[in-house]
Design a protein around this nucleic acid. Structure first.
Length: 589
RNA sequence: GCACCCAUAGCUCAGCUGGAUAGAGCAACGCACUUCUAAUGCGUAGGUCGAAGGUUCGAAUCCUUCUGGGUGUACCA
């Protein structure tokens, strides 16, 4: 891209001042004339001239030395370079002849990048928090692919423990043999209902015990339903057939429900890891680390690592009875994954309440000597809050993922009908359109925000479909497609000599030109927000172009052909960028 | 207590490794559809970038302190 210009500038700086340090160019600000800007302050000491004179001196040499530069202007310490039209033309030639502009073909022989996301518990349905997680994980995976990486998507399912036993217990007590089929309900919701039912029962038992004179802690510890659940967990661990059966059945219901939601969101996993399998992992690794002095054993038999020199604390990795903790499991699972797959990096999409955990985990793996430890990344994201505060499942203030998707779809329908956009579509096409638009709005709404920031979601105010939104970009795409349909059969021949490149056209080409850098930056930072911003910029640049230039009614057939090709290239780029966000681009809307 | 994260327009957010007069969208007001889809475009208005110091030719960006909000600091996961 501007590499040619960059090297020309470097050469000039070297000739003039003997400068051999790094040189950076930035896009010229809108209010100034020019395409690319060099900040000259760093060279003042060498030039021994004023900022303006230095800028002029560099500009003049540059103009002589390179035919990329048509003119320049110097404002204070800024040298604004105007690229020659040849250069703009060369850029568009490169863009249109590329196979899939913006993306790098995946190298099938290189190691893959693994992305872990979603990772739900099996006692309740997915909610808005999971939605942010899932969208981030899916989008980061698509972005890594677009940057040339093979990607392995995994989730770790938290399928064992006291939480699922609570649902199981309540189902036994109150379920009367009900199943998702007989209830006509998604399995994850059904199981979630029993989880809530357990909690009600538990609280009422605690209240009763307290009425009998027990204090709160004692009441909580002695509530019969809790004791039974704990017994159930012991039976599970002992491999009791009946308990295991019920556990497998109810988890199966939940997976069916999850899979429906995943497929609605367009998400899949290459491998599911189950905690009921992975919780035994890690102990061996701890033993080995112990032998090598990475860990130490205390008098009581528990095993620890001392991370105080690294600014962290001491951390337990094996209990005194030799059983493992969360950290143990995560150490073992990470190591296992690098054995299971040919990968060289692993990204965890997990909420920021686990920042410390992952800091410790990565450090331990590094101390254990794994080279890939440097390629572990915690994509830490903030909570999604409601205006009323945190979502609490027990208080029923969670925004359910399926409900949310339903609502987005019906909002999309209301809007489409109001705008009269549904004429000539059959019902199936309409439903598909509402789905694509509703989901597009939701996905963009979530992904455009820096993951680190906590975000507020107000269910009362529906998510926007105008402005800086998914549907805005989808609309730009659909409008182009409409033009392209009408352009069918027209001549596609054009030559640069027959074409005018006005400001808007130039801006559109320059925006397209940024696509690969945007993808690269997004991949480097694991940040869908970068791609989201780019897609918006591109749609905006197109709309400006569209507004200023007639396409099918342009002055000459050659100009029509050129603009149609520019449209085509833009639509393809928009589609690809949206794809990286997990958003579909409709042909019409 | 200690550690980490966040704070930019009324609201929701951009601002990459320090660069020019801090940008979008929503909401408000005004303009533009007999012309390729107005879910659009153009304009007006809106800012002590939480506060105070510091480094620098130059700071929303880097450093220090403080304030406010969040999270973590379990032989839970």
């Amino acid at each position: 891209m501007a590499d040619a210009l960059l090297s020309a500038v470097s050469t000039v700086l070297n000739d003039l001042y003997g400068w051999d340090g790094p040189v950076e160019l930035q896009p010229t600000r809108k209010d100034f004339e020019g395409d690319s800007t060099l900040v000259v302050f760093p060279f003042l000491k060498l030039s021994r001239k004023s900022p303006v004179d230095t800028a002029r001196e560099i500009g003049e040499s540059l103009q002589v030395a390179s035919d990329l530069v048509s003119s320049f202007n110097a404002v204070q310490g800024f040298l604004n370079i105007v690229l020659s039209t040849d250069q703009i033309q060369a850029r568009f030639d490169a863009i249109r002849s590329a196979d899939a502009w913006g993306t790098t073909p995946v190298d099938p022989n290189a190691p893959a990048a693994m992305v872990e996301f979603s990772s739900p518990n099996t006692n309740k349905p997915l909610h808005l928090g999971h939605v942010r997680n899932i969208l981030l994980g899916h989008s980061v995976s698509r972005i890594l692919e677009a940057s040339g990486r093979k990607v392995v998507q995994v989730q770790i399912v938290n399928d064992r423990g006291v939480h699922i036993c609570k649902s199981m217990w309540a189902w036994q007590q109150f379920g009367g043999g009900i199943t998702p089929d007989s209830a006509g309900k998604k399995g994850d919701h059904l199981v979630g209902d029993f989880y809530v039912r357990f909690d009600q029962e538990y609280r009422s038992q605690v209240r009763e015990l307290m009425a009998q004179g027990l204090d709160e802690d004692a009441a909580k510890a002695q509530a019969p339903c809790m004791l039974e659940v704990q017994e159930m967990l012991r039976q599970w661990e002992a491999g009791d057939a009946e308990v295991r059966n019920l556990w497998a059945t109810m988890n199966g219901w939940v997976y069916d429900g999850f899979n429906q939601t995943y497929s609605r969101l367009g998400v899949r996993f290459d491998r599911n890891y189950f905690e009921s399998d992975t919780y035994v992992l890690g102990k061996q690794d701890i033993e080995e680390g112990l032998a090598r002095g990475v860990f130490y054993r205390r008098d009581d038999g528990s095993v620890w690592i001392d991370l105080r020199e690294d600014g962290l604390d001491e951390k337990l990795v094996l209990r005194r009875d030799g059983t493992s903790v969360y950290m143990t499991q995560d150490i073992g699972t990470a190591i296992q994954r690098f054995k299971d797959f040919s990968i060289d990096r692993l990204t965890y999409v997990v909420g920021n309440e686990q920042d410390y955990h992952f800091k410790v985990l990565f450090l331990i793996l590094k101390k254990l000597g794994y080279a890939w430890a440097d390629q572990l990344f915690h994509l830490s994201y903030g909570m999604v809050d409601l205006p009323s505060g945190k979502m609490k499942s027990r208080e029923g203030t969670v925004v359910d993922a399926d409900d949310l998707l339903d609502e987005m779809e019906s909002t999309a329908r209301a809007l489409s009908e109001e705008l009269g956009k549904t004429e000539g579509l059959v019902d199936a096409e309409k439903a598909q359109l509402y789905r694509v638009l509703g989901h597009g709005a939701l996905k963009y709404f979530i992904l455009k925000v820096d993951p680190r920031k906590r975000m507020v979601f107000n269910p009362e105010e529906s998510i926007d479909f105008n402005g800086h939104t998914g549907p805005f970009i989808q609309y730009s795409h659909a409008r182009i497609k409409s033009i392209l349909r009408k352009a069918e059969g027209r001549s596609t021949a054009w030559d640069w000599s027959e074409v005018v490149v006005d400001e808007r056209t130039k801006e559109l080409i320059q925006t397209l030109d940024r696509f690969p850098q945007a993808v690269e930056q997004a991949a480097r930072a694991y940040s869908p927000a970068v791609v989201a911003q780019f897609a918006y910029d591109l749609a905006k640049a197109f709309n400006g172009f569209y507004q200023a230039n007639p396409i099918l009614n342009a002055d000459s057939e050659a100009l029509v052909a050129f603009r149609v090709e520019l449209c085509q290239t833009t639509a393809a780029a928009l589609r690809r960028a949206l794809e990286m966000l997990g958003i579909e681009a409709p042909e019409r809307m």
